[in-house]
C-alpha cells in the first residue's frame, strides 16, 4: 500500500507509525549485527525520516536518478542506519543488504556514500557540510526550473558548526523556499547534553532571525510532522526550518536519553529486548 493512495488522515498516520516501527526494528537489528554504529540519533529521527520517505517526498526507487525527484540529505550522516532502513524499505536495494552494514565489501558504509549506495543523494559524515550541500541542491533545482524540493536533517550538536549558519544566511538571501531543514532536537551530543556543552538556545529565534520560517513540533508525533510539512509547502520566499523536539534513542526504553547509546551498539540480550519492545508498540509496517 503506497502512502500516497491513503486519503483518510487517521489511516495514513497509523500506516506511517507502523512504518516507523519497522525502521526502528531494522536499525536495532542492523547496528546489533554490525556491532558498531549510531543507534541513538537514528531512533530519534525515525518518525521524521519515515514521514518523508513514505509520504512527503516524490521519489521513485525504480528510477533513482529521476531529475524531478525530491531530495533528502542526511546532514547528520552518522544516523546512516535510519536512512539505509528507509531506502531498503522503499525498494532501493534488497532488505538483506542491511545486515551487511559497516562490513568489508558492503555498500552500506559507516557513513552514507553516494557512489556506493543507491538512493543516497550525497556523501555525508563530516558534520555541517551536508546542510550546505542541500542548499546547493535547492539552488541548482531552482536554476533548472524544477519544482523538486530538498529536505535535510541536521543534529543539534551539529548545529554548533559554523558552516550551518553560513549556509543559513545564504539560503535566506536567495529565498530558497524549496528547502526544508529539520532539526533533530534531542538535546544530546557525544559529550553530554547540548544545553550543557555549548547551548544552541534559543534555537527557534536564531533561525527566525536568520530569515527562515520556523515551525516547532514534537518530532515523534506523525500528525505534527505531516502538518508541518504541509505548512512548509505553503511558505513562499524563505527557507523553512522545522524544529523537531525529539528523544534520543526513542522507542527503546533503556536507550532513551542515554548518552552512551549515541555511538554504541546494543549487544546480545539488549538486542532481543529492544526488538521485543518495538514489536510490543504495535504492528511493524
Amino acid at each position: 500500500m503506497a502512502a500516497r493512495a491513503i486519503t483518510d488522515k487517521q489511516t495514513l498516520i497509523e500506516y506511517l507509525e507502523a512504518k516507523a516501527r519497522r525502521l526502528r526494528w531494522d536499525i536495532i537489528k542492523m547496528v546489533g549485527l554490525a556491532r558498531s554504529g549510531h543507534p541513538g540519533g537514528s531512533l530519534s529521527a525515525a518518525d521524521i525520516v519515515t514521514t518523508l520517505f513514505f509520504h512527503e517526498m516524490r521519489h521513485n526507487p525504480d528510477d533513482k536518478d529521476w531529475p524531478d525527484r525530491d531530495r533528502f540529505v542526511l546532514s547528520k550522516g552518522h544516523a546512516a542506519p535510519v536512512l539505509y532502513a528507509a531506502l531498503a524499505e522503499s525498494g532501493y536495494f534488497p532488505k538483506e543488504d542491511l545486515w551487511t552494514l559497516r562490513k568489508m565489501d558492503s555498500h552500506l558504509q559507516g557513513h552514507p556514500d553516494m557512489r556506493k549506495t543507491p538512493g543516497v543523494e550525497i556523501s555525508t559524515g563530516s558534520l555541517g557540510m551536508g546542510f550546505s550541500t542541500a542548499v546547493g541542491m535547492a539552488l541548482g533545482l531552482r536554476l533548472d526550473g524544477r519544482d523538486s524540493r530538498v529536505y535535510t536533517l541536521i543534529g543539534d550538536g551539529e548545529s554548533q558548526e559554523g558552516i550551518i549558519w553560513e549556509a543559513a544566511m545564504f539560503a535566506a538571501q536567495h529565498k530558497l523556499d524549496n528547502l526544508v531543514g529539520i532539526l533533530d532536537y534531542n538535546d544530546m551530543q557525544i559529550d553530554g547534553l547540548v544545553s550543557e556543552i555549548v547551548d544552541i538556545q534559543p534555537v527557534a529565534d536564531k533561525w527566525s532571525a536568520f530569515g527562515w520560517r520556523v515551525i516547532e513540533i514534537d518530532g515523534h508525533k506523525v500528525e505534527q510532522i505531516l502538518d508541518a510539512l504541509d505548512e512548509a509547502r505553503s511558505v513562499k520566499g524563505k527557507p523553512i526550518m522545522i524544529v523537531a523536539n525529539t528523544i534520543k534513542g526513542k522507542g527503546v526504553s533503556f536507550m532513551e536519553r542515554v548518552v552512551d547509546f549515541h555511538g554504541k551498539a546494543p549487544t546480545g540480550e539488549e538486542i532481543d529486548k529492544a526488538l521485543a519492545e518495538i514489536e510490543e508498540l504495535g504492528p511493524l509496517g
Partner: peptide, 26 residues
Amino acid sequence: ADLAKSTTTVKFKKEFPERFFDCGVA
C-alpha cells in the same frame, strides 16, 4: 570538540574541570 571519551581527554576533564573546555562540534 565533543569527542572527550573517544580521545580520552575526559580524563583531564575529571581531574582539572576548570582547565578543560568542550567547544562542542566546532
